[in-house]
C-alpha cells in the first residue's frame, strides 16, 4: 500500500544532507512550510543553497535558518521585505552569497527543471545588469538571455489538503511557488493543514498530483505565521 505519510517533521526530513539545494514554496508568510524549514535546523544540515522568493522575515522559518548560519547561498527574487532584517545583516556583512533572479525566471527555471528542459531563452532581464556575462541571442526583434533549469535536492512545500497518495490542494494565495517547487526537486516533502488518510482527494480538484510528492507530514497549525 502506498502511504507517503511521515509521523513527524524529523522523519519527513530524513536523508537531508549538507550542501543540499533546498527549494522553498511560499510568498511572504503565505504558503510557506515554516515547520519543515525550522526542522532543517534540528537535522544539523549546513552549507545549504536555498531557493525562495523572499529571504525570510522576523525570527521564523527561513530567517531562523539564516541566523543559525546554515545557508551558504540564497537564490531569490525579492529578498528585502518588511522584517527581513536577518537577511540584510548577513548580506551586508558578507556572510551570504546572493543570486538575484527575476521572479518569473525563478518560477520558470524550476518549472523547466521539473519538465526536463535544461535551459531556455527569455527576454526578461536581457537588457539589464542581471544578464552581464551571460549568453544573449536575438529572437524576432528581441534580445533574450539563456537561463538554466534550477534543480533542487529537496523541496519543502505547504499544502492545504493531502491524501496518502501525496495528492495536494492549496488554499487561495497559498499555492504560489509550491506546485513549481514540487516538480523540480528529487525529494519533495509537503506539510499539510488537512489530511485525508484513506479517502482520496477529488481527482478533479487536485493541483499537485502525488507523482511530484514523496513525503507528507500533517501539521494543522492554522493561519500563516506572520
Amino acid at each position: 500500500m502506498i502511504d507517503k505519510l511521515a509521523a513527524s517533521v524529523a522523519e519527513a526530513l530524513t536523508g537531508l544532507e549538507d550542501g543540499a539545494t533546498l527549494l522553498l514554496g511560499g510568498f511572504g508568510a503565505v504558503g510557506q512550510a515554516t515547520h519543515l524549514i525550522e526542522g532543517v535546523i534540528e537535522t544539523g544540515a549546513r552549507d545549504l543553497t536555498v531557493v525562495a522568493n523572499n529571504a525570510g522575515y522576523g525570527q521564523v522559518g527561513l530567517a531562523r535558518l539564516l541566523k543559525e548560519g546554515r545557508v551558504r547561498k540564497l537564490i531569490c527574487s525579492y529578498p528585502r521585505i518588511a522584517g527581513s532584517t536577518i537577511f540584510e545583516e548577513l548580506y551586508s556583512a558578507g556572510g551570504l552569497e546572493l543570486e538575484l533572479v527575476p521572479q518569473g525566471t525563478l518560477a520558470e527555471r524550476m518549472r523547466a527543471a521539473g519538465a526536463g528542459v535544461p535551459a531556455f531563452f527569455t527576454p526578461t532581464g536581457a537588457d539589464t545588469s542581471l544578464a552581464r556575462g551571460r549568453e544573449i541571442r536575438r529572437f524576432g526583434n528581441r534580445d533574450c538571455v539563456l537561463e538554466e533549469a534550477l534543480y533542487g535536492d529537496v523541496a519543502l512545500i505547504e499544502a492545504w489538503e493531502a491524501d496518502r497518495w501525496g495528492n495536494l490542494t492549496y488554499r487561495a494565495a497559498g499555492r504560489n511557488f509550491n506546485p513549481v517547487c514540487a516538480m523540480a526537486a528529487r525529494l519533495t516533502i509537503a506539510q499539510t493543514q488537512h489530511l485525508r488518510r484513506d479517502e482520496p482527494l477529488d481527482p478533479e480538484t487536485i493541483v499537485t498530483p502525488g507523482i511530484f510528492v514523496d513525503r507528507v507530514v500533517h501539521l494543522a497549525y492554522g493561519d500563516p505565521i506572520t
Binding site: S77, P79, I81, Y91, S92, P102, Q103, T124, L130
Partner: peptide
C-alpha cells in the same frame, strides 16, 4: 528596480518580467 549597481540589498521581484511581458 535598483538605485545603483552596488545596491546594498537589491530586490527585483517581478519588475523585469512585467516590463517585457
Amino acid at each position: 528596480w535598483a538605485r545603483s549597481d552596488d545596491d546594498t540589498a537589491p530586490a527585483v521581484g517581478g519588475a523585469m518580467d512585467l516590463a517585457v511581458g
